[in-house]
Every structure is written in C-alpha cells, then in structure tokens.
Design a protein around this nucleic acid. Structure first.
Length: 444
RNA sequence: GGUCCCGUAGCCAAGUGGCUAAGGCAAUGGACUGCAACUCCGUGAUCACCGGUUCGAAUCCGGUCGGGACCUCCA
C-alpha cells in the first residue's frame, strides 16, 4: 500500500503501528448547519479508505468528531431562540441522514466536544503548566515560539506568517501567531475552568480526543486541505508539546470541491447542500470518486450528469445480470472466474493500493460492466455472469455503491414469463404493455 | 506583499522520463430487434504556448499566457 503523506510531501509505503490494525481520525463537522457537497467529499472519501482497508483484512478503528461547541453554534442558537444543545442535536441528526444518502456508513465512533470537556481542559492545563501556553485575562494562548518547526505541515515558515499583513493583532498575545486554547466569553454556553468561565478554542478538541480515545498516537489523520493551516498545524504543535512526538504517522488531505471554478461561498450564494442535491446520490458518489482525492474537483451540472449516467449504466448492467441469473435459478451457483475477470480484480486492487487511485479503480468497474454486458449477449455464460455479479458486489462494497437490486418476486417472474409468451405469439401490443412494466422495475 | 497549485479530445479524467497517451460521458457510423430501449463493434488528442536538458518529455528545468487557492473561520 502506497500513501501520499502530506507531512513529508511524498508517497510512502504504508505500515500500521500494530499488525493488522489501523487507527484513523478524521476531523468532523461543526454542527451549526446542513452540510454542503464540499463537506461531502471527505465523508465519501474516508469512508472508502476505511472500506478498502477492511477489504484488505485490516481492523479499522475509525473516529470522526462532532464540534458541538463553537461561536457559530452560539450564534445560530441565538437566532433560533433556542439552546446550543438543540442546534447541535438537530444538525447531527441531519448530518447522519446526509451521510446515509451519500452511501457512507454511519457506524463509527463520533465523539462530541461536550462529552470530552474535562479532557480538553486538562489538556490545556498541562500545556499551561509546562510553559507551552499562558493565560491572559481569562484567555489562554499557545506559545508558538516554543515549537521550532511550526509550519512544517503546511509548508510555511514563521517569518512568512509574520509578514502576512492579515495576521490578527491581539494586544494581549505575546506573539501574533499564538492561537487561542481557551476563550473567556460573555455570550452563550460556558464551562468552568481553572481560568474562569469560557469555551475551548477549536484546535485542542481533536488532540485531546485522540489522546483520550487512542492513547495519543494514531496511524492516519485525515481531513480537507482547508484544515491544514492552521488547524492541523496547531494540532501537531500541541501534541508535540505534550508528547514530544508526532500525533499521526500519516496525514491525508482531500482536495476541495469548487463550483464553476470557484470556491463555495455562502456569501456569494455559491453553495449546494447535500440534502438539496437533485440527482442520484450514487451518481454523485461516483462523481467525487472519479477524481483523485488530492486533486480539486470542479462541480458543474454537466459533469455531475455525466457520472449520473455512468452510474445508471453500471447499475442497469448489474441488475440485468442479476435478474437473468435469478430467472434461470442460477443465482446460488458458484461463479467461474476467467483470466479477464481476474485481471480486472487485480487491476482494481492495484489502483486502490496506489494512494487510493479511485479513478483507475472505477475504470475497472467499467471494464467489468463491459464484460457483463458481453456475457449477457453470449450463450451459455451463467458461470461467468455469476462471477461478474460477485465481482460487482466486491467493488460496490469497497466503493460504497449500492444498486439496490433484490431478488425477483413471484409476481416479477410471472410478468416476465407473460412477456416472453406474448412475444412468442406475436401479440405485440400486449407484450409492449408488459415490457413497460418490466422496464419500470429495471428487470429488462 | 508573501506562499502554493493547476492547464491532457465538446465535457470529466488517468498517466509524472521510454511500447500505438487508459477509462467514462456526449456525438456519430454499423450490428442486434417485430418496433424501440438497452447492449455490442467502430470512429476522436501536434498533452496551453515558447525555449532548454536528454538517445528519448505530456512527464524534468526556465519563461509566457490563462485559471484558482492559501496567508482570517473554512472539508
């Protein structure tokens, strides 16, 4: 398995800390709104990462958090005249609904910041005691100058950051680059701490939860490119301060999703929410996976339509192969893998092992589709068709695609036989009426 | 001002030094069919431009043009 490591900027051979087990953490959403299709990208991609590792026999401990304490949630609660917990719960539920729509599994550990507040406060306290952080008027800041290679992940040097005209200037900070660990606040929910009532900054939650859940050192840390700076940079700094070693062996960052060549922007009305997507979600999933995860994706209706069509063809082929076998009572037989199918499987795995080259993996899905369609037109190919269905099932499981094809009912069979009979007797009007029903159900 | 990424057929996209530059969508010709749909077979690229390195470059280096991101919350 080869993985591009954002930390070292090179493709490396992946080796987990423990034989056969992979600990992975992906930064999750701040739950103050419905997620948009850009947020959907890591939801889909890291789901595929997990699925592929599981296919390869690994046990994957997958954790992705919910940020349910944040200024934006406080603002939203004030707007809606309710409390933060209500807002968070509402959007966590909505998040799970969207994740399911996208075909990603919801069965993973999803810790909430509110459930780990004492761990977060304790973490900050240790940073203060060891001199890596300092308190000013109820605010706590991280002392960036204590970390010599600060900026290594995002490829920035401290001097460059200092020169940036837009670095925020807060008088009480020792250094403009110092970031907030704890914030004294007047408005919204607060928590008691050694520095008074307030709320934690955003950057400590992930490291504190990783420490509490995994013991402080994981295999893979994932997230969107947009989080590299400053969030992940700050995670690295804090973890380095407390533990003296890197928090994760591999960092994986997915590229962003733009709309019409530009970044999604709420203020400019260029946002598409997952729940409002008026397309087949499996087609959308295929669309995101058809570009390598590190490259940016440019969304347009035309491009998405391309992949929705792709998916329809794949799904149709699968369904027809499946139903043909079902009608012939051959679904329970064993498949026969010929050299062509073996090569398709082999190429698929090879593509995935090459830093999750899902576009090339999808090419093999197309090759399989062609194979199945060819077998459908040839005589006496049930064993090969059966093998194709098995391989489809494997690819679908790894990529998280679901054609929603189930075994035929008695009614479906009767309909099919009636159609065949009508055609044999050249009763075309009746045959066409039945055909329409069969097509509606995707059986032919 | 500083840092960085990208430009492959109408559209999406893989390939990052070496066989005829994968694959899909769209288009188009043919086959199959009672008609149709589906499907199958076939058809498409001086790899933005200019120069350099090399026996050899889409791939490396320099420049030009074009697009975008980050340095502030951001998947």
């Amino acid at each position: 398995m080869r993985l591009y490591n954002s930390l070292t900027k090179r493709t490396e051979t992946f080796e987990p800390k423990r034989e056969g087990i992979i600990d992975i953490y992906v930064c999750g959403p701040t739950v103050y709104n419905y997620i948009h299709i850009g947020n959907a990208r890591p939801v889909v991609f890291f789901d595929v990462v997990r699925r592929f590792f599981e296919h390869m026999g690994y046990t994957v401990n997958f954790v992705s958090n919910f940020t349910d304490v944040d200024d934006k949630i406080v603002t939203k609660a004030l707007e809606d005249e309710t409390d933060e917990m209500t807002i968070a719960n509402r959007f966590i539920e909505a998040f799970y609904r969207d994740v399911e729509r996208l075909g990603s599994t919801t069965k993973y550990l999803a810790p909430r910041v509110t459930e780990h507040m004492s761990a977060i406060i304790d973490y900050i306290d240790r940073l203060v005691r060891s001199g890596y952080a300092y308190e000013r008027n109820g605010n706590v800041y991280f002392r960036v100058s204590e970390i010599p290679d600060y900026g290594m992940l995002s490829g920035r040097r401290v001097e460059e950051l200092m020169e940036g005209a837009r670095v925020s200037v807060e008088a009480e900070k020792e250094n403009p680059l110092d970031f907030t660990l704890w914030k004294r606040v007047e408005e919204g929910v607060t928590y008691p701490s050694p520095w008074g009532e307030g709320r934690p900054g955003w950057h400590t939650e992930c490291v504190a939860m990783i420490e509490e859940i995994f013991g402080g050192h994981i295999d893979i840390h994932g997230g969107g490119t947009g989080l590299m700076f400053p969030h992940h940079e700050n995670e690295i700094a804090q973890h380095r301060a407390v533990h003296g070693h890197p928090i994760a062996n591999y960092w994986m960052h997915n590229g962003l999703l733009n709309i019409d060549q530009q970044k999604m922007s709420k203020s400019e009305g260029r946002v598409i929410l997952v729940k409002d997507l008026d397309y087949d979600y499996m087609g959308f999933r295929l669309f995101t996976l058809n570009t390598h995860y590190r490259a940016p994706i440019d969304y347009s209706d035309e491009t998405l339509t391309n992949h929705v069509n792709d998916w329809q063809k794949i799904k149709r082929t699968y369904a027809q192969t499946f139903y043909r076998l079902d009608l012939a009572e051959k679904l329970d037989r064993n498949g026969s893998f010929d050299s062509r199918l073996n090569r398709i499987y082999h190429n698929f795995i090879e593509a995935m092992e090459q830093d999750f080259n899902t576009p090339n993996a999808i090419t093999e899905l197309h090759n399989l589709t062609k194979y199945a369609n060819q077998k459908l037109r040839e005589k006496d190919t049930f064993p090969q068709m059966r093998a194709a269905v098995e391989l489809f099932d494997t690819f679908f499981r790894v990529l998280g695609l679901d054609p929603r094809v189930r075994r035929l009912t008695q009614n479906d069979r009767a309909l099919y036989h009636a159609w065949t009979e009508a055609r044999q007797h050249k009763e075309y009007e009746r045959a066409d009426a039945i055909r329409e029903k069969l097509q509606e159900r995707g059986i032919i």
